[in-house]
Design a protein around this nucleic acid. Structure first.
Length: 288
DNA sequence: AATCTAAGCAACCGCTCCCTG
DNA sequence: CCAGGGAGCGGTTGCTTAGAT
């Protein structure tokens, strides 16, 4: 299977985006909605008489990581941090999946935050050989958090199983946190605002749209948002429905996650969930 | 004030997945 | 069923900026 030639095309611009390019992209998406990225460079010529000389990948990335409305920027809260750590233990380096639990953060943001902050933090806190989620995918090629202690000699079977148990416990904790956060978290409290913004967004664009590009960008940037955020709060299952740009990725993981969640939840309910069963957990708990 | 270094982050690259014909 | 192509994901790079010397 050959790679997409779009990014190799000559004449395609690379590097940091300019405000003008952002406006072009936002204007395009306001008219067409996100998706069909391949058509963006062409359609911006047709629609706006100005071509956006960026490849489809670049457009998608710019939109999802920066322009997409509802994105929260700035430092991560302790709650978010905690959630990321737990989800990383549960899912491994599947940043897109983790990002579905933090609708206002992008996968890229989370990934960067993990690599620049959390990894170090955990390494400092947790003694060698007990580092949760460290290089979780490097050995198994999958998201096996229990195999995350890969930088050490093979673990005896019994011990390995104990650690697996420990990770299951972590996963449960993460799930509970994720759910409880949705009830108390700013995300939830801002649902109304987001929904209102979404309605604004859904209004037909004014004919004078292009006369005030700055406003257009701002309105728009609070918009889609919404689509993603408002539909995505609380329940992972409903999360995917509104946001076309994350729909596909969520679709990929939705079923497994739902199964996993159901399983974890059922188990937690049945067992009433108990104290950590492994020193590892104590270590990670001590982080907070 | 100038230079060096490290941290943070935006963007790119290359791979895989999945849809469509 | 298969091949092609678009979309998405995770890893990595490289630029910018802040802090240290």
């Amino acid at each position: 299977m050959g790679r997409s030639p779009c990014c190799d095309k000559e004449g395609m611009k690379k590097g940091p985006w300019t405000p003008e390019e952002d406006l072009l992209l936002v204007s395009y998406i306001q008219g067409h909605g996100p998706g069909n990225w391949k058509a963006v460079p062409i359609n911006t010529v047709v629609m706006l008489a100005v071509g956006l000389m960026r490849c489809s990948k670049s457009c998608r990335l710019r939109w999802t990581n920066y322009l997409r409305p509802g994105i929260k920027r700035g430092s991560f809260t302790e709650q978010e941090e905690k959630l990321i750590i737990h989800l990383q233990a549960l899912l491994g380096n599947r940043w897109a999946a983790i990002a579905t639990y933090l609708p206002e953060r992008t996968d890229n943001d989370i990934k960067n935050y993990w690599n620049t902050h959390l990894k170090k933090k955990l390494q400092r806190k947790i003694p060698k050989g007990h580092q949760l989620g460290e290089e979780a995918t490097s050995v198994s090629g999958g998201h096996d958090a229990s195999l995350s202690m890969d930088c050490q000699p093979p673990i005896p079977k019994g011990q390995w199983e104990r650690r697996l148990q420990a990770d299951i416990h972590l996963a449960k904790q993460a799930l509970r946190d994720a759910i409880s956060l949705s009830n108390t978290h700013p995300y939830a409290s801002s649902t109304e605002n987001i929904a209102r913004l979404l309605q604004e967004w859904m209004k037909p664009p004014p004919s004078t749209k292009r006369t005030d590009p700055a406003n257009s960008a701002v309105d728009c940037s609070t918009s889609t948002a919404a689509a993603a955020a408002s539909s995505s709060l609380l329940m992972p299952e409903t999360r995917a429905s509104g946001a076309s740009e994350i729909k596909a990725s969520v679709g990929k993981i939705q079923t497994p996650l739902s199964i996993l969640e159901t399983w974890l939840l059922n188990e937690s309910m049945e067992q009433g969930d108990t104290a950590p069963m492994d020193p590892i957990l104590d270590d990670s708990a001590a982080l907070f």
